[in-house]
């Protein structure tokens, strides 16, 4: 356990540089700023539309994925490119322990930044709509999105230096375009899976906008947690296999 916690602490410290924290912190706060601007002179219905249609969408579908892809792509990638991977691999630790600790690091580090935006936006929505389900839902949805994206892009970061580019193609081409048009593919969109968890916790949302965004998915906390847990488990197995089978040149 000490070894796992040490890996998490060292990795989080390495991937959370001050400049990255500040830059991503501002990015995370941006949707809350949009909501603040658009809700000042709107009616209750208008605020709900603005929240669901723009702020929530920007936060869960763009901001959180970008932060998580960049952070998770570097938890193993930076070790490999910085030549510190051998330091880690020459310890009496199973490859599953290393893979698991790295995934926890990626989720924790990306959540630490994303949570800033989730708390700001969630508090503003909760106060605006008099329902703290927004805050809880946003924190839960953010954590699920962090975990889902980290699980996918951590092993990709180990395999290629272009993990961030791959991630952006996934976010902006696959999720935002293809999975949005072909509703049957919405289950392959990680932010939509996370959004089903949020939608189940926040009672008042614009149903029409939400239905259009989620596609074939239906709100439900249990389903979202299960799906993300399965993705994380598969990720740990694949990453451990990569660590075990590939040469460390």
């Amino acid at each position: 356990m000490t070894a796992t916690l040490s890996i998490v602490a060292v990795t989080a410290r390495n991937v959370l540089g001050l400049r990255r924290m500040v830059g991503f912190g501002l990015l995370a706060a941006f949707p809350a700023f949009i909501f603040f601007l658009t809700s000042r002179q709107s009616s209750d219905v208008g605020r709900l539309e603005n929240f669901t249609g723009s702020s929530l969408f920007i936060f869960l579908a763009v901001v959180v994925p970008i932060i998580t892809v960049v952070v998770s792509g570097s938890v193993l990638g930076s070790e490999r490119r910085g030549n510190t991977m051998s330091f880690l691999m020459l310890r009496p630790l199973s490859r599953y322990t290393i893979a698991g600790a790295k995934l926890v690091s990626a989720v924790a580090a990306s959540f630490a930044i994303s949570a800033v935006g989730a708390v700001l936006l969630g508090l503003m929505a909760s106060i605006s709509f008099d329902d703290f389900g927004y805050l809880i839902g946003l924190l839960g949805g953010t954590l699920l999105a962090n975990a889902g994206y980290a699980a996918i892009f951590m092993p990709i970061g180990y395999l290629t230096e272009r993990a961030t580019l791959t991630g952006f193609i996934y976010i902006f081409v696959w999720e935002s375009a293809i999975a949005a048009i072909i509703t049957g593919l919405s289950g392959t969109s990680l932010w939509r899976i996370a959004a089903t968890g949020f939608a189940a916790l926040a009672e008042r949302l614009d149903g029409e906008i939400l239905d259009a965004a989620l596609g074939s998915l239906t709100p439900g906390v249990g389903g979202a947690i299960t799906k993300v847990a399965v993705i994380c488990a598969i990720s740990v197995v694949i990453t451990a296999y990569l660590l075990q089978s590939r040469d460390l040149t």
Binding site: R13, G82, N83, T84, M85, S86, F87, L90, R91, P92
Partner: peptide, 22 residues
């Protein structure tokens, strides 16, 4: 490659700079 517990008894100083600068 199979039994990682062997690293309790092995130390390696690689040629490359395997350090964390910070």
């Amino acid at each position: 490659r199979r039994d990682h517990s062997v690293y309790r008894d092995v130390g390696l100083v690689p040629e490359e700079s395997s350090i964390y600068p910070s």
